[in-house]
Amino acid sequence: MKMKKLYYDVKKCLGCKSCEIACAVAHSKSETLFSAIREEVLSLPRKKVLHHKDKNYPVSCRHCKDPICVDACMAAALVYDKEKGMVFHDESRCVGCWMCVMVCPYGAIRPNVKTKIPLRCDKCQDKDEPSCVKACPTGAILWQEEIELPAAVKGQSPSGTVPCKE
């Protein structure tokens, strides 16, 4: 079976940041909005909506097949799991050197300066689908099996994937 991945239809993204809130809530202790904002250590979103020219881009780890961050990790806290198609982050091994943050071509890894370790999308492993997908009011975030892209496009993208419709 092909792995499911997050894709973005950026034409539909209104920049409402609902995905950011949903992500922070999903990674909080209580997993409910009203309680999450009162937790001692506040949960932070793994996803950020960035704005460029006329478009909004929800950005989070793409779990590249050839992940540069894994190579860059000196503490071996990052591992690419081929079967799951995911970069795993072992927080207990992480030393907070920010190398992964620096090498990521998408700027998708976010430093959490309070906990001194980076934040990375885990595709909401414990849920049936990532929380950001459910939270998106316009359907701009897609959760679907990987699509083979034309070779010409492939060459332009370091990870082999680009947003499906841009």
Binding site: S18, A22, L33, F34, A135, P137
Partner: peptide, 9 residues
């Protein structure tokens, strides 16, 4: 649903 978190808060 889900309703906007900023709105709810």
């Amino acid at each position: 649903e889900p309703q906007c978190g900023f709105g709810q808060l």
